[in-house]
């Protein structure tokens, strides 16, 4: 066998593994969706997940949103004033946050804070036979544990992105209006005029909802399918963060491309 053939074999084996994994993950998502009655029939289960995935992620989302807004204010002003259009600062800050930075960065933070926690929890429950115990007690772990986490993540993600964008806008306002002295009325009215509800706000919400599905799905599947050992769980957590981030960025490109087709 020469080198070319060996390489081809490697590529073939890799593709088969990849397809198998994607297939298994899709079956898993299908099972989660089919068995999603419980979180809605017992809202307390859902509320607990909204708290752990959402409320506990809020602090890093607020802090990061603030810093990103501050930087946007500085960079935006610096660029705009070269063209004498520093009055457009409000719209630049708001549009960048609503369309891109809010959904994307909030999703990255969500993957590393809430996603990793989900993977760790499921993986450890698996390693300590808690999921097996549930199954033997005639309680479906997908319906009881996975589905509430899934819907918790999906519902919370757009809210986190919205909070991120809102705090970011305040950061931009602080730098632009309070520190640099851009006219306050112009700042807000420019923003109001430039931001369209259907395109910019709704687009951002759609994006963050998709990111919520993607990140939560990856996190839960990694936990569910990990090897039930200390090493297996830690590898699954790493994969959640890495794959989650890559998937968010890739999905962002695809969604943005689709949204621009209409423009």
């Amino acid at each position: 066998m020469n080198r070319g053939e060996a390489l081809l074999l490697e590529v073939g084996a890799f593709s088969r593994r990849l397809v198998t994994r994607v297939g298994r993950a899709s079956l898993f998502l299908g099972a989660v969706l089919r068995r999603s009655q419980m979180p809605f029939a017992r809202p307390r289960l859902l509320l607990r997940e909204i708290y752990t995935a959402g409320v506990l992620t809020l602090s890093i989302v607020v802090v990061s949103g603030g810093f990103v807004g501050l930087v946007l204010g500085l960079q935006g002003y610096d660029t705009l004033q070269r063209f004498g259009s520093e009055t457009a600062l409000g719209s630049v800050v708001a549009l960048s946050l609503l369309r891109e930075l809010g959904p994307v960065i909030a999703a990255l933070l969500f993957a590393s804070r809430a996603g990793s926690a989900m993977t760790a929890e499921i993986g450890l429950m698996k390693a300590t036979e808690q999921l097996d115990a549930m199954e033997v007690m005639a309680v479906d772990p997908i319906a009881r544990v996975i589905a509430p986490k899934f819907w918790g993540g999906v519902l919370v993600m757009p809210l986190l992105a919205a909070v991120f964008s809102a705090v970011g806008v305040l950061g931009g306002w602080f730098i632009g209006v309070v520190v640099i002295g851009v006219d306050e009325g112009t700042f807000w009215s420019q923003m109001q005029g430039a931001v369209s509800w259907e395109e910019d706000v709704a687009g951002g919400v759609i994006k963050s909802a998709v990111f919520g599905v993607v990140v939560t799905w990856i996190a839960l599947y990694q936990g569910w399918s990990c090897r039930p050992t200390a090493e297996g769980v830690s590898q699954a957590i790493t994969r959640t963060v890495v794959l989650g981030a890559l998937a968010v960025l890739a999905a962002d490109f695809v969604l943005t491309a689709f949204m621009f087709i209409g423009v």
């Binding site: 300590t128 036979e129 808690q130 097996d132 033997v136 007690m137 005639a138």
Partner: peptide
Amino acid sequence: IQRLRRRLGMLFQQGALFT
């Protein structure tokens, strides 16, 4: 299976308690 499982109890090796 679910119906039969409701009639049995199992003790796992390490207890498998919900932590």
